[in-house]
Structures are given as structure tokens and as C-alpha cells.
Amino acid sequence: MLHVERLTRRFPNGVVALDGIDLSVGEGEIVSVLGTSGCGKSTLLRLLMGLDAPSAGRVTVDGVPVTGPVPSVGVIFQEPRLMPWLSVADNVRFGIAKLDRTEREARLAEALELVGLTEFADAYPRELSGGMAQRVAIARALVRRPSILLLDEPFSALDNFTRIALQDHLLRIWAAQRITMVFVTHDIEEALTLGDRVIVMRGSPGRIHREILPGPRPRLRNTLAFHTLKDEVATALNLFEDAGGI
């Protein structure tokens, strides 16, 4: 479905942000990409989004090389990035303006329902909490019925409670629609809760270091198995060594 072949991104200043990344994401799969800041995971996602061009290698969606944003790929950024001059409903409608009216309104109602914001259709972004605003961003992506969803640390700016609620929310949406997802995060628990596979990246230059399979769902955050996995991932991230051997 989504293929990445020997993807390399070298910035003009000589920094190699990505070095020969190979990755395949199957239909209906959730792949978490985990790494510390500066490991190139956001650069990777920008290349998948078609917002940046690789120095070498390529990205294909359903066999077609990505040279710019792809209509069947939905994107959710770290910040909600809502248009402050548009109401919630108009923000969600923003990417489906070309559909005919009946279809557009039906999809809008469905998307707002899905994120639980039907009552806030007429509110403006300034009136929303951070979690609500991010839910609007999710609705704006889903309303286009994407087959792939790319998420760039979408919950990292939210408080812990809201983050866990939205992770569960995202999983329910996934269970219902089986959208393929690539979820970039720097939160180990989040990567393990959401991903069918967890890709661990290490930086300078950005490479895939390991792949971890967290096992069957649901993944309860308070089990021993989950904690063992967390330790394994932390080791893979080289966290203990960086912490000075504590």
C-alpha cells in the first residue's frame, strides 16, 4: 500500500536527516515510528506527505510515486492548524469544497459525529480546547475518506488525560474503518498502544534501528508484559546509555 525504498534526505547544509530508509506499510496496518527528537522521523513523514522531495530513493502509494500531496492520503499535524476565521464546520468542509452539496453535508455530519463535535459545528477555533481543536483536525482529514492517514506527533501537545482519550478514540475509528496509519511519536507508550509494528529510529544520520512487534490488542498499559516491552523499546532507543548508566 505504502512503500518507501532507500529513501535519503540530505539538507542543503550537508546534514543527512534520512539515510536509506526502507519501509512497507500494509493495508489496514498501524505503524508507529518512534524516535528521539532530531532522529529524522518528522522529515520522513514530510516526505510521505509529499511536502518535501527526497535526495534519493522514492515513496510510492499503491504503486504510484509520490511527487506532491496525494488525495487518498490524509494528514494530521502536531498542531491542529485550523483556519481561525472559519467555524468548526467550515474547517471540516475545507478540503471537500468540490463535492456537491448533499454529499458534502452528509460527510460533514458523519465526520463531526465521529469525533463527537456535532454540537460545536458553529464554534470558532478560539473557543475550543486543545483536544477539541485536534479532534476537528482529525475530522478534517477523515471527511476526505483517506485510505492512508499520516500523523505527526498529533497528541504531543495535549495533557496526559486528553492524550489517552484521543488515542482510544483513534483506535475506535481505526477499528471501524481500518484506515492504514503511520503514526510518528516520541512517546514510547503511545507507540506501543497504537502500533501493530513499532519502528524505532535513531538519528544522525536518520536510520531505522529496530522493529518491535507489541503483540495482540488490546494492550493494557498496566500489565507486566507492557512494561517489559517499554524497557525493550527504551533500550532500543539507547535511552539508558544516554542517561549516563543510571
Binding site: 500531496p69 494528514v75 499535524f77 483556519m83 475545507f94 478534517r140 476526505r144
Partner: peptide
């Protein structure tokens, strides 16, 4: 720039980005 990127990933053309993002944001 982040709002303009939203327009790009939502498949807006150049003219639409001007009319639907740059114009209201500049008002």
C-alpha cells in the same frame, strides 16, 4: 506557513490557496 501546508495536503490549487488562505489571513 503551516496553514498554507494544510491547503497543500488538502489538494488546494495555487489560486485556491491564495483566495481561501492567504486573503483571509492577510485581512
Amino acid at each position: 506557513r503551516k496553514l498554507v501546508e494544510v491547503g497543500e495536503v488538502l489538494g488546494l490549487g495555487r489560486f485556491e490557496i491564495v483566495w481561501r488562505i492567504l486573503v483571509p489571513a492577510t485581512l
